[in-house]
Design a protein around this nucleic acid. Structure first.
Lengths: 194, 194
DNA sequence: GTCTATAGGCCGATAGAC
DNA sequence: GTCTATCGGCCTATAGAC
């Protein structure tokens, strides 16, 4: 139940965001949204055309928020390695998973270009931002040679997204943390050679 | 609709496996299973106690199959690197995602220990198998030094699971392939040093 | 803007005939 | 084993009063 200081549309969007995160699109019903938002049936349909319209507003906001958070971490100062480390180690509710990545498992979202687009766009932006940082690191000789920045960026994003999967399967964030440590180990500047 | 040469329970399990893969647990209804299996309502409830019982049979079989496939690839000959490469490059229906990993996004599966256990177990076994191969590679000096085999194994599994997420978001397998290439680049024996 | 009433259909399951 | 009938409840809206 969201605070009454928020407008009804606001509360509906926030309730939908939380439900999409936890239960996905298929598992989220208008009725559940209304109850969580403290709004009536007629009220919801007055402000939004229907379930998919409400989901679109929720997804857009979640995507926007994620994009801003990632930019805040990757746009900071320090070496490329330290910024990637900061991205990988940033606070996460690991067992809850990624509010955006989770949506890719929903067939109805993947099948609908309107709903899929914001999901595709943020993940694409995160990947591009990671690639830029990796490229900086390559230019500065921070990482091993002969690496492709776009490829490594895809690996970093995938490690995070897949880390959630492992962690949720196990019921503990342990495997997420392991995956991140493993990746950092592979990325780490090897000053001693081998 | 599954071939009539299969018994009714067989057809029900196979239909459930396909639906769980594509639509998840929440998105899979007994009615849809019956139609796909060509079985009636009463028939389904005669062979299985209900939706979760049927899902359990389906999940167990899918998990078993995945475990065997992974073992076939990782248990083969060649260097550790080449076996990991074979695992990463094995044929996959990338846009369909992982039939096991997908289930971790289902709150009802994660919340039910009976349904979650087979999911947790296979992914755990895959990770352990990967770790053994990585350790062999470390012992043979194939990889950079100072790496933890368990951590790297978690990274490999996560890259695959997360690769599916990226690919489904984009609607193309491209980012999956990139993530894999990036990981192989990071793992690659660097004979030239840097 | 919000409410209640109503709709047709699916949900997951049970009962009992054949 | 498989069938049809039936269940209470939820799904996603729509309609129209207030």
């Amino acid at each position: 139940m969201y605070s009454a200081v928020m407008s009804t549309p606001e509360r509906l969007i926030e309730a939908t965001r939380a439900l999409l995160w936890d239960r996905g699109y298929v598992g989220t019903s208008p009725k559940a949204v209304q109850q969580a938002a403290g709004a009536g049936q007629g009220s919801m349909y007055h402000h939004f055309a229907g379930k998919s319209d409400l989901a679109l507003a929720a997804i857009r906001r979640t995507a926007e928020e994620l994009g801003a958070e990632v930019e805040a971490v990757l746009g900071g100062g320090g070496t490329a390695y330290s910024r990637i480390e900061a991205y990988l180690l940033r606070e996460r509710d690991v067992l809850r998973g990624c509010p955006v990545g989770r949506l890719t498992m929903d067939p109805e979202i993947i099948a609908d270009p309107v709903l899929r687009t914001p999901v595709d766009e943020v993940l694409g932006r995160v990947r591009a931002r990671l690639a830029a940082v990796v490229q900086e690191g390559l230019d500065d000789g921070e990482f091993g040679t002969r690496l492709d920045a776009e490829d490594v960026a895809a690996t970093i994003l995938a490690t995070v997204q897949g880390g959630y999967v492992s962690a949720r399967a196990a019921g503990t964030r342990d495997s997420f943390d392991r995956a991140v440590r493993g990746l950092l180990g592979l990325l780490a500047p090897r000053t001693t050679g081998h």
